[in-house]
Design a protein around this nucleic acid. Structure first.
Length: 805
RNA sequence: GCGGGCAUGGCGGAAUUGGCAGACGCACUAGACUUAGGAUCUAGCGCCGCGUGCGUGGGGGUUCAAGUCCCUCUGCCCGCACCA
């Protein structure tokens, strides 16, 4: 029958064209169907093209999407391009090609590659963050944030990449170097646009309860937000009316505070420069600290450094003791109040500092030896040396001292977050222009909505200026403009937005991508949101997820979207490593190009292998041999055509196996256990061959099960076997639970827990009758000879265990 | 340092509530078909001293029964990293 070879090259192109022509995967406008929104992270179209890591999540959700369509859902499964960003710009600078052209080329390459893999994306909804029709709305959302006071400009030390000459968010600094280029990062003070994500800290944390994210994603969100409860306490600066406000999570240890530490940047230092007798020394320390990158600050942490503020002392409010004030870079200006009370007896960092500078250590919680090490246990300790707190447990002491502080109005209960506001400025060309102008008279003024998008001007040169200004700053006729408010002279903001901007709301645009009246219509947003299943890499689980949740919540508060959370479910895929078990990279020479796999083996083989390679959420090493095995499987699927016989139902021999496989594949797909689902299908194919024949009913079901994984070969066979219509719009098969179990079962016979034989029994056979069978087996009789049976345990349909002495 | 994850044949990896460890694939071995085989098919394939033997990183425990539960130790991977 199959007198021709399986030829993926031919059939894959053929079916991709047919699907396009038939608009097979175009999202339906039929609102009567239940909706399903499946989302994968849209790629950054790099110059390298697709690598084999990309298809892993795409294939996974393509499988889910194809299955959902067969289950009767109206499915939205879109794709687009996160195309602003540094690599494109750097490439453009180097090769003197406009980044728009570079982007176009990269996108077209990526798109061809994705198309060759047969994904069921609705390409009519393709979006591109660099398209003015798209970034118009990115700018629009920014203006809303500005309008609501959530965008502000401030002078602040930022991480400055000396190589890219660009400001980086904390998150983009990895191990002290620039995440993208690996260049040195130093601190530099610049005026920056910031977004007040901290205002949403509590909601971003609490609403994690509303969603179904894998646990490790929730944990990383929580850690990043970093909520901690404690108190703010004011310490009087002796002989002044000023106070040093500190934040502590251990107000119970207040009696043990023997000195204070300010961050080197703390403003009170300037205020009291007259009083500080060693001010030169202080300035010198501050200078050194500011030059250090965050990385150096932490790297050199083995040894604490600091300078006392001579001439200044503070008063511990609980006991009136005078205590010295120091500055040290282990106290960060960006957390809490930039100042701490130091309790060396019960904080490791303070302990280390106190030991180095011979500062007093007072034990206030019993349980350790505070001469040897800080005692930080909060569960068991009892307060000592602490006046009215003596004898209390830590948790009770905390409550009591906070009440006391609040009564005396020298402190209050306080919640702090590690999360900081989002640095939203980039001094770069290839990003969304920030749609604000600065007017001497009116200050920062948004450009009118009808003038959006504010497009990027054409420039000769994309290199940032030496001073760190964006290249836009050099285009005077773009910069110079009039104030929309007063009509006077004004200048445009020349910073652009970070790459995170466009990806913070792209999932909303997919619901209505061509709308020119709104970022998406309320109707489409209401129907499609939330995203039912969002899969992406672990590397995006903190930032992208947090940022896009923030924007979504902001739009929710404004009434534009109707769900408090954007993504109902979030899963994560593991990385694909090279054959040598190392991360794939050019320099390691272990990169596998998906095009080569498609050419040699076919897209269906690539898809099958990517899903078979191992547990979806774990990293897995590529194996060319493994790819071959999957191709061999598809060859065997193809050749099954030789043994097909008539019959719409399942044969008696295979009925149970068929139902078991339908069940296994259906459930495994849902749990992203693609590897075992494919294993089950391989096993079924093996059974087809050992059975010597397959009915049309069996092959039909098999092809539908395999279709989400290998859509081309199954579509082709469906046609060759003259089944009706297209496989892509068949119904997903259902299993009959009763038919998933054989009526004859082999059980294990154990003696003292060790396997000593097996017996065939009928399903749910009574213990007595099973016992008879077991006791009649020669080998069992032999072992039992002369022994005493103490106990017999029968687990129905599983084991029969005899305990003897 | 803190948080999370992992450890099973030669390799990738399977194993509901504890219930026949090693599904499925790769590699390997033997045979068949062949001028040929890096194609295909058939069979075998955890280890050894071949036993009433041993075996899921090491040690201990609970249980009739442990990869799975508890205690403890070791090693690897990924986040975060002076967050008061």
């Amino acid at each position: 029958m199959a007198n021709f070879e399986y030829n993926p090259k031919e059939i894959e192109k053929k079916w991709q064209d047919i699907w396009d022509e038939e608009e097979a995967f175009k999202t339906s406008t039929d609102r009567s169907k239940p909706k399903y929104y499946a989302l994968v992270e849209f790629p950054y179209p790099s110059g390298q093209g697709l690598h084999v890591g990309h298809p892993r999540p795409y294939t996974a959700l393509d499988i889910i999407s194809r299955k959902r369509r067969m289950e009767g859902y109206n499915v939205l499964f879109p794709m687009g391009w996160d195309a602003f960003g540094l690599p494109t710009e750097n490439f453009a600078i180097k090769n003197k090609i406009h980044p728009r052209i570079v982007t176009e080329n990269n996108v077209s390459r990526f798109k061809n590659q994705l198309k060759s893999l047969g994904y069921s994306f609705d390409w009519s909804r393709e979006i591109n963050t660099t398209d003015p029709e798209y970034y118009k709305w990115t700018q629009w959302i920014f203006l809303k944030l500005f309008e609501k006071g959530l965008a502000y400009k401030t002078e602040m030390p930022i991480n400055w990449c000396t190589q890219c000459k660009v400001g980086l968010a904390n998150e983009e600094v990895v191990n002290g170097v620039c995440e993208r280029c690996g260049g040195e990062v130093v601190r530099k003070v610049k005026s920056q646009w910031m977004l007040k994500i901290t205002e949403y800290a509590e909601k971003l944390l609490n609403d994690l309860d509303l969603v179904d994210y894998i646990e490790k994603v929730k944990i990383s969100q929580k850690n990043w937000i970093g909520r901690s409860e404690g108190a703010e306490v004011d310490f009087n600066i002796k002989d002044t009316d000023d106070f040093i406000r500190i934040f502590t999570t251990r107000p119970d240890t207040l009696f043990g505070a023997t000195y204070m530490v300010l961050s080197p940047e703390h403003p009170l230092i300037d205020k009291y420069k007259e009083k500080i007798t060693n001010y030169d020394e202080v300035l010198e320390y501050r200078e050194i600290a500011s030059k250090k990158s965050d990385f150096e600050r932490t790297e050199l942490s083995k040894e604490k450094t600091g300078v006392p503020l001579k001439g200044i002392s503070a008063v511990n409010p609980v006991n009136g003791n005078n205590i010295p004030v120091w500055i040290s870079d282990y106290v960060l200006m960006t957390y809490g109040t930039g100042a701490i009370m130091a309790v060396p007896a019960h904080d490791e960092r303070d302990f280390e500092f106190a030991k180095k500078f011979s500062l007093p250590i007072i034990e206030v919680v019993k349980g350790g030896n505070v001469e040897e090490a800080a005692y930080t246990d909060t569960e068991t300790g009892i307060l000592v040396n602490s006046g009215f707190l003596n004898g209390l447990e830590v948790k009770d002491a905390k409550g009591k001292i906070i009440n006391w502080l609040e009564e005396k109005k020298i402190g209050k209960r306080k919640v702090n977050y590690k999360l900081r506001d989002w640095v939203f400025s980039r001094q770069r060309y290839w990003g969304e222009p920030i749609p604000l102008v600065y007017c001497e008279k009116c200050g920062w003024v948004p450009i009118p909505e009808e003038e959006l998008p504010l497009t990027l001007p054409e420039v000769e040169n994309y290199v940032p200026t030496e001073t760190g200004e964006s290249p836009l700053a050099n285009i005077r006729d773009w910069v110079e403009t009039t104030c929309p408010k007063c009509g006077g002279h004004a200048e445009r903001e020349t910073d652009t937005m970070p790459q995170w901007a466009g990806s913070s709301w792209y999932f909303l645009r997919y619901t209505d991508p061509h709308n020119d009246k709104a970022f998406a219509s309320k109707e489409d947003l209401d129907y499609w949101l939330p995203v039912d299943w969002y899969n992406g890499g672990m590397e995006h689980t903190t930032l992208h997820l947090l940022y896009s949740r923030f924007w979504h919540k902001f739009l929710y508060d404004l009434g534009y979207v109707s769900t408090p959370e954007p993504y109902q479910k979030r899963t994560s895929h593991g990385m694909i490593l090279g054959e040598n078990n190392e991360k794939m990279s050019k320099s390691r020479g272990n990169v596998v190009n998906p095009d080569d796999i498609v050419n040699e083996f076919g897209a269906d083989t690539l898809r099958t292998y990517e899903m078979f390679i191992g547990a979806f959420d774990q990293s897995a090493a590529w194996s060319q041999q493994g790819v071959k095995g999957c191709r061999r499987f598809l060859d065997r699927v193809w050749k099954v055509q030789d043994i097909i016989v008539d019959g719409d139902s399942f044969s008696k021999e295979l009925e149970v196996k068929m139902h078991q496989t339908i069940k296994k594949v259906s459930l495994d797909f849902e749990q992203m256990k693609f590897n075992t689902a494919i294993a089950a299908m391989m096993s079924l194919i093996n059974d087809f061959y050992s059975n010597g024949k397959v009915t049309k009913g069996e092959i039909k079901t098999f092809l539908i099960l395999l279709n989400p994984v290998a859509p081309h070969i199954t579509e082709e066979m469906w046609q060759l076997l003259k089944f009706e219509g297209r496989i892509y719009n068949q119904k997903w098969p259902v299993w009959d639970e009763e038919k998933t179990v054989e009526d004859t079962i082999e059980i294990a016979i154990q003696i003292n827990g060790k396997l000593r034989g097996t017996a065939l029994i009928s399903l749910n056979e009574e213990k007595e009758s099973v016992k008879e069978k077991v006791m009649s087996i020669d080998k069992i009789k032999e072992i039992l000879e002369g022994k005493t049976i103490i106990k017999e345990i029968y687990v129905p349909n599983k084991i029969y265990n005899i305990v003897i002495k």
